[in-house]
Computed example of a mutant assay.
Amino acid sequence: MSLQSVKAFFAEHAPDIEVIETPTSSATVTLAAEALGVEPGQIAKTICMRVGDRVLLVVARGDARIDNRKTRDAFGGKPRMLDAEQVADITGHPVGGVCPFGLASPLPVYCDVSLRAFEEVVPAAGATNTAVRIGVERMAGLVGAEWCDICLDAQGAVATR
């Protein structure tokens, strides 16, 4: 169901974008980077979190880590990651295939500025062996994302891109 909802999303909103299905798992940043031939930072990971009573998605570069202080400041509360079952129920996508496309229910989507280091990123596409190649700004526009700055870069320093 999840892969189909992503394909339906692209058929309606961006028919020129093709969902890539890999023969191996792309469920982690490392596996996805290997399967798709890109550097880990270019993988756009989607994180589902709860802040207070709100659930939201944050899309960030694959090698970035969330900074809890910056996240509290940006979203007004302590971020809590949802467990795999909650993520699947809320997004309609399994962990490892979570993306901001074809969601089971509308959720606010935020793109971290860390993504702007790349013109094109590779987010998952609703299954643990699928992805799409998409321009950063186009992805944000398609999902109505707001930009945020809540990540540390790969070396642990605060991202300032």
Rank of each mutant, 00 (worst) to 15 (best):
E18W: 04
I17W: 08
G41E: 05
G77S: 01
E39D: 09
A154E: 14
R138L: 10
L3T: 01
G52F: 07
A117M: 14
L56I: 04
I90M: 06
H93M: 07
V55N: 15
A32I: 03
P100G: 04
A159I: 02
D53V: 00
T128K: 14
I43K: 09
A157Q: 14
A33C: 04
A140C: 07
T24I: 12
G37V: 05
L3V: 04
V158R: 12
C151S: 07
I150E: 05
I43L: 08
R61D: 03
V109F: 13
G97F: 07
P15R: 10
P23I: 00
A35S: 08
T28R: 13
Q4R: 13
I150R: 05
M49N: 11
V95W: 14
N129V: 01
V19G: 03
E12Y: 02
A74E: 14
V58I: 12
V109D: 10
E85T: 05
T24W: 13
R65I: 01
G76C: 07
E85S: 01
T71I: 00
E18Q: 14
D83W: 09
A14C: 05
P123I: 00
R50T: 05
V29G: 07
P40H: 05
P100F: 04
P106S: 11
V58E: 11
H13M: 06
C99N: 04
E146V: 01
A159R: 08
T28N: 08
V98G: 10
P40C: 08
G37F: 07
A8N: 13
R50L: 00
V136R: 15
P108Q: 09
M81R: 15
K70Q: 15
E18I: 05
I90Y: 12
R80L: 11
V113R: 15
A32K: 14
A27G: 12
T128P: 15
P15H: 04
P94I: 09
E137V: 00
A60F: 00
I43W: 10
C99K: 08
D89A: 10
A8I: 02
M1Q: 15
I47G: 08
G96A: 00
I17H: 09
T30E: 15
E146N: 11
V113G: 12
R65H: 01
A64R: 11
A159D: 15
V121S: 12
G41W: 08
A27H: 06
V109W: 10
D53E: 11
T91R: 06
T28G: 09
A88H: 05
C151T: 14
A104I: 00
V59F: 11
T91Q: 06
V59E: 10
G92P: 02
G52K: 13
G76I: 01
A117W: 14
Q4F: 01
D83N: 15
T46C: 13
D16M: 01
H13E: 11
V132R: 13
R72T: 09
T160G: 08
G77Y: 07
V98H: 08
V38Q: 12
M139L: 15
G76F: 03
